[in-house]
Amino acid sequence: MLIRYLVTEILKLRRSLALILCLAAPTCVVILTTLMRLDKDGPVSLGMFGMTSAAFWAFAMLPLTLTALSVLLAQIEHGPRTWNYLLTLPGARPQLFLAKALVMLGLVIGMTLLLFVEIRIASAMMALVKPIDPAPAPFDLPTTLGKMAIASLLVAMLQLWVALRFRSFVPPLVFGIAGTFVAIAATSAKQGIYFPWLLAVNMLSQPERQDFALWMGGVGGLAVMLAMLVHLSRREA
């Protein structure tokens, strides 16, 4: 039954704004960072270019995209009130919500892959028009982006929970924007490491902070997902 729910959740993404967002968000980051690099004189460090792109992604675009994505995914059902149909079907309700969570997770992984591919394409294109700085990259790009995706699971599930709980798109939007803004203020704070919206950014800092953020984001995300499944499955439509 979970497979059925998963397949239908994926089919619902056809022509949806959620899918367009997933294509647009990483592309925007790469276009912006590419323009910034091209604007500078001298050789281009591809390692730094990758790091700048990843930093933009983790700090601003990923949390804002998770906010918008959770809203758009939830509004696929809230907008036309399809819960009245979906929840009458025979089958376990937790599987329906689990399928939605897995699709959200899948889209985050998809955006991460797209970001990586686009950074590589942009790097190759820049090498054609600019001299390249041979200095090695300060970190392994695919590993870092992958860790960011895992660390963002906690925020992704918090956002999805709020978005599925409320029929209006305002509460999840306020929740996500507020989280991102608090994250900006908390960046330099000592306790900033614990703030869910900054967990992905921690992948660009010291290894011990990375490990902590990875665990908190991953395990915390799974715990929140379980709580969400229990809560939403018991709610009346």
């Binding site: 059925r4 239908t8 089919l11 619902k12 056809r14 696929i76 149909y85 089958g91």
Partner: peptide, 27 residues
Amino acid sequence: IGSLIETPSLYDHLTGRENLDIARRLL
């Protein structure tokens, strides 16, 4: 049981056939 409660709740961004296909797969 089959049902239509309150409003015809359909996925507007999908075609009529795709709407039915989603329900068919779930069933």
